[in-house]
Design a binder for these strands. Structure first.
Lengths: 346, 346
DNA sequence: GGCACGCTGGAATGCGTGTTCCACGATAAC
DNA sequence: GTTATCGTGGAACACGCATTCCAGCGTGCC
């Protein structure tokens, strides 16, 4: 008794101290379907607090047959895009007696599947899959199967952006946003564009690129094949891609990077090479990441309400109903013109 | 059988399909102390995969009496400071058969305590408390008590920065870093300083402020009481605090903001009021947040290896040993001089 | 006054798994 | 040929809790 005081205090300890049975103690603490006398209940509550009783969530989950754990799987928690979504999910979960578990796949698709399996092992109530799906058929098929397993075992799955999964999905309107942005830039007077794109396998990046091209086309502007440069979906990817473009910078009016961090990298490359933004070249991004709102010149971009995206995903989890057909919630982006582009008077 | 196929597949299902008993199935899957014949084991493994068996982690945890869940409690996951630490923890956890649960307190101390209780309920193996402790005696005492409960029930607690808790701690040398920064700035020729500080209740902010003052003093420079302005620990806090300082900007050489996001806000305020950085005023921050590395002019700051901080915390969890006395791991910052300060020739 | 009924508390069961204890067959040692 | 030993598989129990079933008791109704 003196050495290892291991082993937490259990409901039985509480019951013994209050001089009641397990059943009564449980009923007093959870206030379940049946009432327990006020005097006894108070005795149990006092015993619990004086013993610092914390119910064993594992045992509760097993006895009840369900958990209140929601898993959130993102690609990279250090990326402000995903951390904003995560913040939105967690804020929405506040007050709903739910424990949010966050997993970061470090951009490896097979980890994503592993995490869904692990969360199924936890008997999680739900999984939220955030992030642009890699367009690898094998991995996509494996994920689809595991999602099915997860749902078969009683959980609900919600996706963000992953349009190809047959589950409730929060769709970010990347294509429409990029289209709107293209239109706004053409109206400013820009005509000769280039795009810093990311791997075509990333659906988000691809949608933005295609949307941008469509937007230009509907205004009578065409994008040449040389005008699309590919690089990783990161700051350094934008930097390198922009460097490849600088040799012919004088042929260009404006560069669109498919996300803000790439745009910031591109801006750094421009600065290093004496290309002034926006005087020599316009520059636009996508996302409106709040920590990047203070770069100078301020970035023209498409604002995405990422916290709302997370909150919406959580709402889909709460209101999930397996009898209902698949639901889709669309989140629109909004073009924000700032100092990295200007009105052109040709 | 057709409608609700609820209820996951259990170990019993696997055993039945393989034609063995529960015990044998368990032994075959976990490879525990005793061996099971190769033929039978293969039968069990095949049954498991063909049924998509995922062991119920709750039940395992209860049977084993311990979990492999590690809880990470941060103040705000959308803050890059914390998301970098979180990324470090998760990367370190990779391959250690551990599930990391992330909780975000939204900067409310009572939520921090709630989460520790919840994690105790989960019978988590460990909790990592990240973030500058609010200097509220009542809350600190309550947290200390709850940490004690957590350890009594068999878990380990690791703190980041929270020096006042009697647990293994990763200490970020805020004071020394700020001291070094002050020295470097004085050597550049700056003499008339101001500090954008945050609430004194935040130990991190206070340490940086005090360290900066000490560094100045050791170089014969004093900081007047008017020269310290307080604001929230955020971008907008820095913006507002700087605005309050701009009326007397011509009396100043250099402004130190106690973290990068405040410095970025301050830079925006300067820009709006035509104060040029670094020509009219030097500006320095703290943290070297990577997403802020591209502001222009680039920020002089103190680089903290935040991923290393997270990884170190996780290492303390893994190597924890209750018999050992409290360990402390110190993480040093490194002064990085960039374009937001310059050499002064008075 | 007897009986049905509502209310409260206790004993027992089940959740899914790990593990201990026991039984059984085979082999080796004498 | 008999026994000790080892290897392997099955039955039973424990983990901590929710919940169902059952017993006792007081009250109201006929």
């Amino acid at each position: 008794m003196t050495d290892q005081h291991r082993g937490s205090v259990t409901l039985m300890d509480v019951a013994a101290r209050a001089g009641v049975s397990l059943a009564t103690a449980s009923r007093a603490l959870n206030g379940s379907n049946r009432r327990v006398g006020d005097a006894l209940r108070q005795r149990v509550l006092d015993a619990a607090t004086s013993l610092n009783y914390a119910p064993n969530a594992q045992a509760q989950a097993m006895a009840r047959g369900k958990t209140n754990v929601v898993g959130l799987v993102v690609h990279d928690i250090a990326d402000p895009y995903f951390s904003s979504i995560a913040a939105g999910v967690m804020e929405a979960a506040e007050g709903h007696e739910v424990l949010v578990t966050l997993a970061s796949t470090l951009r490896r698709p097979e980890r994503e599947i592993d995490y869904v399996v692990a969360l199924r092992g936890q008997r999680s109530r739900a999984v939220i899959l955030a992030g642009s799906r890699i367009d690898d058929d094998d991995a996509a098929e494996a994920l689809r199967r595991e999602v099915e397993n997860f749902e078969d075992s009683g959980g609900t799955v919600v996706a963000i952006t992953q349009k190809q999964l047959p589950v409730d999905t929060v769709v970010i309107e990347n294509r429409a946003g990029a289209r709107d942005l293209a239109g706004a830039l053409v109206e400013l007077g820009y005509r000769r564009f280039a795009v810093l794109a990311a791997s075509d396998a990333l659906l988000t990046a691809r949608d933005r690129m295609h949307g941008f091209r469509e937007g230009l086309r509907s205004h009578g502007v065409e994008l040449g094949s040389d005008d699309v440069v590919y690089g990783p979906f990161t700051r350094d990817g934008g930097y390198e891609a922009m460097r490849g473009l600088l040799s012919r910078a004088d042929e260009l009016d404006c560069v669109f990077a498919v996300n803000d961090v790439m745009a910031v990298g591109a801006m750094a490359a421009c600065r290093e090479h004496g290309v002034r933004v926006p005087d020599d070249l316009g520059l636009a991004g996508f996302d409106d990441i709040s920590t990047l709102r203070d770069v100078n010149p301020a970035l023209t971009t498409v604002r995405l309400p990422l916290e709302t995206v997370g909150a919406t995903a959580f709402d889909l989890v709460l209101t999930s109903d397996s009898r209902e057909r698949i639901r889709t919630r669309r989140i629109k982006g909004e073009v924000v013109l700032r100092q990295s582009t200007r009105t052109l008077n040709p």
